[in-house]
Amino acid sequence: MALERREQDELIEQHLALVGYHVSEMIRRVPTHVQRDELAAAGSLALVQAARGFNADLGVPFARYASTRIRGAILDELRGMDWASRGTRQRARRLAELTERLTGDLGRAPRPDELAQAMGVGVDELRSIRDDAQRRVVSLDADTTDATGSISDKAPNPEERIVVDERLRYLTAGVGELPENLRAVVQGIFFEERPVAELAAELGVTQSRISQLRTQALGMLRDAMNTALDPELAPVASDVPGVAEKRRQAYYAAVAQRASATALRTVVEVATPPVISEAV
């Protein structure tokens, strides 16, 4: 049985720390140019999705259920990124080819100095190339320490609850203000769990295009939230904004306006006392 919206929101607030935990676990295993905010956005949407689809009657603790969804979303986000640069991939391939050739020529595994000489690099750079080659997304599937119980048991204090409510309000507003095609992709993937192939057919685009739209949507959500809540992390606006920049700024403003309107409605609802009719 699905939970009421209030109960879903409470679950999201109580377990938001799971997103930070899993992002921290993943961010240590990928190159430094992978943005933490991008993984956090994917994880946050997965948490919302988990709360919307959670069925307590199944007997599975929400923390465990949500952790699986959050971690899966972060992995999907990483797999959708081309986070290994072209140069990194080329060096990794060359390293593999040289290792194979030298092994055949020498009749044994080549030493690091032999490989480095064959590649025309120093031994330290060779180690760096080897490390990059080994840091594959599939390695992220290894189990991590399960801290879901201790994390989710810590209920947010009033100040933390305000911060969480604000971020959720902006996230919801950001999804609502996305362009129609991007909103359809986000809702389809994160909230309706529809297959990418089905979304692609409905929108008349390729599956790779769906991946691009998903990345674009998450980037817009991240930038809109940072612009409103973490200005130091927000993208720097151009001094002479073009059409694309003006559209981005209009989107940020629309998100802020919608989030503010939602907050105002909440305040009014809380402040307005219920009307009690008296029996005549």
Rank of each mutant, 00 (worst) to 15 (best):
R108D: 02
A184S: 07
R135I: 05
R71P: 09
A197G: 04
V270W: 05
T262A: 14
L11K: 03
Q207A: 05
G188W: 12
L140Q: 12
S260G: 15
T99D: 04
P31A: 02
D113S: 05
G174I: 10
P156F: 13
Q35H: 06
A244L: 11
I12W: 02
I210N: 02
D239Q: 09
E177T: 09
T32W: 03
Q90E: 15
A63F: 06
R169V: 12
E7P: 00
I12C: 02
K246W: 00
T88P: 10
M26A: 05
N157V: 14
R248P: 06
I70L: 08
T32I: 02
R5Y: 01
L58P: 00
L140W: 03
V48K: 00
E202L: 05
H33I: 03
P274T: 10
Q187E: 07
H22A: 03
G20F: 11
D76T: 14
T32G: 00
Y170G: 13
A155T: 13
D143F: 14
V137E: 14
P274W: 05
D9K: 01
F190R: 11
I12N: 02
A40N: 00
P112K: 00
A197M: 01
P179H: 12
Y251D: 14
A84M: 14
L95H: 09
S128Q: 10
D57F: 01
M26F: 02
D37R: 04
S128T: 11
N226P: 00
A2C: 00
Q212N: 09
Q257K: 15
A263K: 06
A244K: 10
A133K: 07
D141N: 12
N226S: 08
E180Q: 14
V30W: 00
P231R: 09
G149H: 13
S150N: 12
